[in-house]
Design a protein around this nucleic acid. Sequence first.
DNA 1: CGGGATCTTGAGGATGCTCAACGCTAGTGG
DNA 2: CCACTAGCGTTGAGCATCCTCAAGATCCCG
Lengths: 254, 254
Amino acid sequence: MSNTNNSEKRIPFDMNAAPLKRDQEFGNPCAACEVREMSLCNVLDDQEISHLAAIVTALECSSRDPIIDEGEPSDYVYNVTDGAVKLFKLLPDGRRQITGFLFAGDFLGIALNDTYAYSAEAVNKTKLCRIQRTKLEGLLDRFPKLEKRLLGIASNELVQAQDQMLLLGRKTAKEKLCSFLLNLSKRAKIRDLDPKIVSVPMSRADIGDYLGLTTETVSRTFTNLKRSGAIRLREGGLVEIADLQDLEDLAEGA
Amino acid sequence: MSNTNNSEKRIPFDMNAAPLKRDQEFGNPCAACEVREMSLCNVLDDQEISHLAAIVTALECSSRDPIIDEGEPSDYVYNVTDGAVKLFKLLPDGRRQITGFLFAGDFLGIALNDTYAYSAEAVNKTKLCRIQRTKLEGLLDRFPKLEKRLLGIASNELVQAQDQMLLLGRKTAKEKLCSFLLNLSKRAKIRDLDPKIVSVPMSRADIGDYLGLTTETVSRTFTNLKRSGAIRLREGGLVEIADLQDLEDLAEGA
DNA sequence: CGGGATCTTGAGGATGCTCAACGCTAGTGG
DNA sequence: CCACTAGCGTTGAGCATCCTCAAGATCCCG
């Protein structure tokens, strides 16, 4: 289960990747980070964030590259800056439960134990910021508001985890898939994208392992939703939602 | 769904409830609290904890009394000092998912949102400490180590939540029940009780709603485990585990 | 004791799983 | 340029696990 084959590639920061909206000092790429507003870092001002920039390493990895492995020493935490990541746990016989998907701005590795409690893998081409845990902890002591923010993130994740438990324990396949699409829709909305057209970058198998279903059931349920007119499948893994409120109702069994 | 009928009873602290292991000032009952070592409060020394004692209210409630209601303003947080509490979420048609059970020393209401994300109800006769959220937040600013502790608690709950997702999404009825019993066993061990004889104070229906099963399936699965010799049912809701390692194996499908 | 709630057990059925085949797409190499 | 392959998605048929509905059994509290 352990995976030491680290296929991440260290890359230099691309200073010209996006129009820079902020003063940018040399050696302070975090100040210009595109996802800064959405991430943990948004509680630090330009001055403070230079301390973060000094200890951060940018990484890039492609589809299925492992990022962390359950049980390994939790030496690093990560911030997703682009792409998508799946978190999962495995049973000895290979059954897999995906516990969450992360997108740009999401934080990875919050567990403050000495080993990771789950594995993480890139869903598609993904960019990450890596920080050594010990160094992050230094920052937490220095900036209590960072710690407060982290608590907010954790508490938010807990709420999501509880929703997911309700889904896994008590919802039907159809309700599960509708809930999932609505989730993606809400995330899209937060990122100022059209909530009625959601990008679904992960495979049917991944969706199944997230919703406690098989690939086949996910596929069949997609077909049913399509036939009933609730959604339309578009090119490039896009799903168009006919009516958000209708889907909300379907997601709760109404 | 809203429940303003608050059947909690305010009671005076019982100074003689347990042998006092610490100096105890008048008006500082927290210093003598039996569950102090297991709870959030264990990061505060006798001096500091008096600030907590000043803002805490002790409550007692009996089986099925509501403690918090999903959607209500989250004005208070609680610490369970005795008994057991269940956390749950409901679907509009009444389907229920229990997201966790709390016991003495456990913290309740960690979500830092303005409304509760779930409901909580007493499983049996239960004692609680209630703290106004605003006052707790004052303490957090004053004692950063309290905030750190809270982050630790939250991160721990996240790990448990991920285990529960694996259980709900990918385990069979038998594996679910074995995992559940092992969970109770581990909690018992932490509390210095015999890990092979666990107290199961909650009903079959509660267990079902926790494991994503029906009452009948829980009952049948108990019977199967009993027949196979993995457990024995004792008086008073006690379950005796024949062999912890065997049960571990059953819980993971080995 | 009595009665309501809880637990157990049984029979039948539905949802979602397993196993299998086939289509589609993209990447590869002749 | 196109055949070939591998991976993914879709669809179908049959089946297993767990659910539903129902009836007893047991427990607990007054």
